[in-house]
């Protein structure tokens, strides 16, 4: 079962998990697999590949721009899944696909799950898929194909809802660090610390990864004090914009973290 890669990871390693987000087809159309291989070699624990969308509502300027470039490069779900064909020969990291629901709907939700699972994807993040719809319509399809769906929580999410999310998911909970879109500079604050410890003390069955505003070693280490690990996205996209060759950019950035 594909989801074992995610569950196994959390069984084997209980802290300091580094999850890197990058946009498929960015900076160049053919960079997707190169970046994956390099991330594995440089010590990432899991990856989240963004499927570009014309209207990424929850994303800040950096990821919006990478989405636009990727689309101009010709990236699509079809192309991404073709690129990932055979990726499991070289890459053992758990892979999560993140994207907005509309392109997935047009591809066909069931066909998407089937094709994603076949090439070795382990989980999905679909931030605009609502709970009720997930439970009624989508859950059986995801389960049939062994894919985990990862849900987000924010400082405004009620305890009851967090517990509901914890019950619905079986890999990890994506803990959004503050009320913001991706890539905001988050200042550590007392209220944020209170939110982190509140969630940590709920005794949830799923591990927690903190994302949004995690950009460097200090913010990564800080997040790891309150959760099992953290997700870096916009800062990694910026690292890919450096003038060096793409493999070098990945390595240099990961070196600053580990």
């Amino acid at each position: 079962m594909a989801q074992n890669r995610l569950t196994r990871l959390f069984q084997e390693k209980s802290g300091n998990l580094l999850n890197i987000y990058f946009t498929a087809g960015y900076p160049k159309l053919e960079d997707t697999v190169t970046i994956l291989e390099e991330l594995e070699a440089a010590g990432a624990d899991l990856v989240e590949i963004g499927m570009p969308f014309s209207d990424p509502l929850a994303d800040g300027p950096t990821i919006q721009a990478s989405n636009m470039v990727a689309l101009e490069n010709g990236m699509s779900i079809k192309t991404l899944l073709q690129q990932l064909e055979g990726v499991r020969e070289n890459v053992t990291l758990p892979i999560i696909l993140m994207g907005y629901l509309n392109p997935v709907m047009q591809y066909g939700f069931e066909r998407f799950c089937e094709d994603a699972a076949r090439v070795g994807v382990d989980g999905l993040i679909l931030p605009d898929l609502p709970f009720a719809e997930y439970e009624e319509e989508y859950k059986p399809i995801l389960e049939k194909h062994g894919l985990s769906l990862i849900f987000l929580i924010t400082p405004q999410t009620s305890e009851a809802r967090i517990r509901q999310i914890d019950k619905l998911t079986n890999s990890f909970i994506y803990m959004v660090s503050s009320a913001s879109t991706t890539g905001s500079q988050v200042q550590a604050s007392d209220s944020q610390q209170a939110y982190f410890s509140k969630v940590k003390n709920l005794g949830l069955k799923n591990p927690l990864l903190i994302g949004f505003g995690i950009s460097d070693k200090p913010s990564f280490e800080m997040a790891c004090l309150s959760a099992h690990g953290a997700i870096i996205g916009s800062a990694f996209i910026k690292a890919l914009q450096q003038p060096e060759e793409v493999r070098q950019n990945v390595r240099s950035f990961l070196k600053t973290l580990r």
Partner: peptide
């Protein structure tokens, strides 16, 4: 219809 929104907008 429906409300297809990210968790950040839910509250």
């Amino acid at each position: 219809g429906g409300a297809f929104i990210p968790e950040m907008l839910y509250p």
